[in-house]
């Protein structure tokens, strides 16, 4: 899976947690989940759990810390899915 393919799927994971659909449609690797997408921090764990379910991966404490922006989320998903191969 390329980073662009992960980004497209990640958009679906993030969608339930943001009302800002215009920003969501235009996310790139620098998009911050809280300051740009206006996602409440209380939903960050939901996003981690949903990403785990979608990609059948396990995201630990240290990896979760990186998931503050879209690029960080893609890094973690890419790394964890590669570990399965």
């Amino acid at each position: 899976m390329t980073r662009q393919e992960i980004l497209i799927e990640l958009r679906k994971v993030l969608s339930p947690y943001t009302l800002d659909k215009e920003t969501l449609a235009n996310i790139d690797e620098g998009t911050n989940l809280i300051t740009d997408l206006k996602i409440n921090s209380a939903n960050l764990v939901d996003i981690i759990i949903d990403a785990e379910t979608k990609y059948n991966i396990e995201i630990d404490y240290d990896a979760a810390d990186k998931m503050v922006n879209v690029g960080g989320c893609i890094d973690v998903i890419e790394e964890k899915t590669n570990q399965q191969i």
Binding site: A42, V45, D46, I48, I49, E52, I59, Y61, A64
Partner: peptide, 17 residues
């Protein structure tokens, strides 16, 4: 009123933090 109580109680959720 906004939280998901069922999900919150799952170890998979709360052990993240």
């Amino acid at each position: 009123g906004t939280i998901n109580a069922t999900r919150t109680k799952e170890p998979r959720f709360y052990t993240k933090f």
